[in-house]
């Protein structure tokens, strides 16, 4: 019985050792500084140029994304419940507060302009303040190391001002308000 107990305990310890940071969360700031203005998708870096299509077939690149505006905000969506919640929050509050910013949804799952257009339509985002970009080859996903819910803000000089998971919209509005 004691050997059985020891085996169970050992098994449990092995399992728990593979559990990452969740068992004992850290509050330590482990961000590593990046060289401001260098090329990359992290905050303070200059975004590499990109070229993707939107759901109407128009090509959008770094320059056109921010043309005539203070900057652009990108939200990575897979058309899921939490995505809808975030997008709805942005549409009803943030976009109205910042008319001098272009807002983009980045569809990285549909794989085609037609598929993304259909998804945007069915979710109610085909028209309005958002433009939906179709990241068929994951160009934007890779530049910004993004996933569902990642929110990126770029100013009109191409500098990344924010790159993080969408939370309650407060950080997004702070980043947009701070655009030069």
């Amino acid at each position: 019985m004691s050997s059985c107990r020891a085996i169970c305990l050992l098994t449990l310890l092995v399992l728990l050792s593979a559990c990452g940071d969740n068992l004992f969360p850290s509050g330590e700031d482990k961000r590593t500084p990046v060289s401001a203005g260098s090329s990359g998708g992290s905050v303070s870096q200059k975004s590499p140029d990109f070229s993707v299509s939107d759901i109407r077939g128009a090509t959008v690149n770094l320059a056109s994304a921010t043309a005539g505006k203070k900057g652009a905000a990108f939200y990575f969506t897979m058309w899921c419940p939490i995505c809808d919640s975030h997008m709805s929050d942005m549409r009803t509050s943030t976009t109205l507060m910042f008319p001098d910013v272009n807002f983009f949804l980045v569809d990285y799952v549909s794989g085609s302009v037609a598929g993304a257009a259909r998804a945007a339509t069915e979710n109610g985002y085909a028209f309005g303040v958002f433009s939906t970009l179709v990241d068929t080859d994951n160009t934007l996903l890779n530049i910004f190391h993004a996933t569902m819910g990642t929110t990126v803000v770029i100013d009109n000089t191409g500098i990344v001002r924010m790159n993080e998971d969408y939370r309650d919209g407060v950080n997004l509005r702070k980043a947009l308000a701070a655009l030069p």
Binding site: D21, P25, S26, G27, E28, D29, K30, R31, T32, H145, T147, T150, N163, E164, D165
Partner: peptide, 14 residues
């Protein structure tokens, strides 16, 4: 409640 300093592999302000 817990502290968070990383989201999807990217370290963030805690």
């Amino acid at each position: 409640e817990r502290t968070i300093n990383r989201e999807y592999g990217k370290y963030v302000a805690p």
